[in-house]
Amino acid sequence: MSGMSDIQETRLHEVAHARAGDKGNRSNISLIPYKPETYALLLEQVTEVRVLELFAHKGATKVTRYELPNLPALNFVIDDALEGGVNAALNLDQHGKTLSYLLLGLSVSMPRALILHPAPE
């Protein structure tokens, strides 16, 4: 059993991967843990509220989180995240293709064993 000393602050990038897609002004970003044991911790820590905060400066108005326990993976649908999307955005990345890595920058607390490149003990 891991002790509390095993828990490290890290970024989602160390425990999961992601891909962003667009439809109109709505972005969807998958979040797929490298290790299945991570899934339960993602459910706890990567909430709709936190993701909405992360995309607030983009104008996001709503986040819906879908759960896919068999993969396992999460799918976040973020309304109004694309500053108008391909129809209207002035952003260089009109499709929001790079936004998967905005999500992967989110801070999380994870047991050392689940982190791809953990900090030295």
Binding site: R19, G21, S30, I32, L68, N75
Partner: peptide, 16 residues
Amino acid sequence: AQTVKEQLLYEIHDPA
């Protein structure tokens, strides 16, 4: 499995 999962969810909203 990783490459397939990323594409499976690409541009999907409600998976159901």
